[in-house]
Amino acid sequence: MATEEGWHTVEDGAKLYTKTWKTEGPAKARLVFIHGFSDHCNTYNDFFPTLASKGIEVYSYDQRGWGRTVQKPSEKGNTGPTTRVLDDITSFLKTVIPCPIPLFLMGHSMGGGEVLCYTTQGPADVRQHIRGYLLEAPFVDFSPASKPSPITVFFGRLAGKLMPHHQMVNKLDVTLVSRNAAVQKQMEEDDLCHDTGTLEALAGLLDRTGALASGKIKIPDDAGEGGETRIFFAHGDSDGITNFHATKSLFDRITAKDKEFKHYEGHFHRLHDEPAPENHAFMNDVADWILARSVEPVQKSKL
C-alpha cells in the first residue's frame, strides 16, 4: 500500500498539507476525509490503510490551523470562519473531480460537523459528484462530560467577534478519546495535536453545533450524486467528547431514503482507534457501506 504526500494551494494562497493512501490494484471508490479538532490526517493509524486494502483510495489533508499545514505558531487553530472551512473542503474536492469512480465524503468529530454542514451549504455543482456522506462521531453537540457552560459559550462567541485571531487552548481529555492506552499516549505526545483554536474558529464550531443540534441546519434529500442523499452515521454510546444522543436525534430527523445509523455499544470517540479487534467492526462497516454503493452507476442529475 503506497502513500503520496503533497501540498494543495487554496484560492487565498494558503497551502494545505495533503496525503493519499493508494490501493494496490484498481480502486473501486475514493474517499475524501476531513479530520477533527486537535487532529491531523496522519493520526488515523490502521483506518486508512485498511480502507485502501479493500479497494478504497483515501484522500485527506491537514485543515487550516492544524497538523503540517501550520507553518508558524500564529497559525495554530486559525481555521477561519465556517465559510472559509467549507471553501477549503470545496477546493480540495475539486482536485479529485470529476472522478472516474464513486466519490464519498467523510468527517470525524469536528470534521463530521463540517461535512454535515457541507451537505446543505456546499456548492451544488460539487456536491453532485458525491455518491455518499459518512460521519464518525460527528460534532453535533458536546457530550455532557465535555459540555461548556452556557455563559462560557455566550462570552466565547462574543469574544470571537471582538478578537477573532486570539488563540485559546482547549485541551481534549485523551482518556475520553479512546479506551486504547497506546492511542491516548499517541495523542498526548503528538505536538501537532496542539489543542489550540482561535476565538473565531471556536465560535464557528459552536455556531455549527448549535445549528445542527437545534435542527436549524436540515440535511436535504438531494445533497449528492443523482440528486439523492446517501448518508451513514457511526457513533459510540460511551463517547465523552461528542454527544451520541444528539447525533441519533439528528439522524432520526433526516428524511433521505438511503440512511444508516450504526450504534457501537461501549465505544469511545475514535471508533477507528478503539482496542482491536473491536475497531475492526467499525472499519469493516465503513468499507462495506462504501463498496455497496460503488457497484452500480448512478443516473446523473442536477441538484
Rank of each mutant, 00 (worst) to 15 (best):
E114S: 14
S91A: 15
L93A: 10
D87S: 14
P138K: 08
H108F: 10
I130P: 04
L135G: 01
G132Q: 01
K94I: 00
P138Y: 09
V126Q: 07
R127E: 09
T95N: 06
P81D: 08
T79L: 09
V96Q: 05
E114Y: 10
T120N: 11
Y118E: 03
G107C: 13
C117L: 12
T119P: 03
E114D: 13
G111R: 11
P144I: 08
E114A: 14
P138I: 11
P148S: 08
F92Q: 01
L86T: 04
C99W: 04
G112Q: 11
C117N: 15
L86Q: 05
M106H: 04
T95Q: 06
P123W: 04
I97L: 09
S146W: 11
P100T: 10
G113C: 09
L105H: 00
Q121C: 06
I89C: 03
I130A: 04
F92M: 10
S109Y: 06
P123C: 11
A137M: 03
L86S: 01
M110A: 14
T82M: 10
I89M: 11
R131T: 15
I97G: 06
P144S: 07
C99M: 00
P148G: 01
P148Q: 13
D88Y: 08
L86F: 01
D125Q: 14
T95R: 13
G113D: 11
V96I: 05
F142S: 09
G107F: 07
I130T: 06
P123L: 04
C99Q: 04
A124Y: 00
G113E: 11
T90P: 08
P144G: 05
E136N: 13
D87K: 15
Q128C: 14
M110R: 06
P81W: 09
T119K: 06
Q121H: 13
G111T: 12
L86C: 03
S109V: 08
T119Q: 02
S109I: 13
V126I: 15
G80V: 08
G132N: 05
H108C: 00
T79I: 02
F92H: 03
I97T: 14
C99T: 13
I97Q: 02
P81M: 06
K147Y: 02
A145D: 08
G132R: 02
T83R: 08
P138A: 08
I130N: 03
L116Y: 12
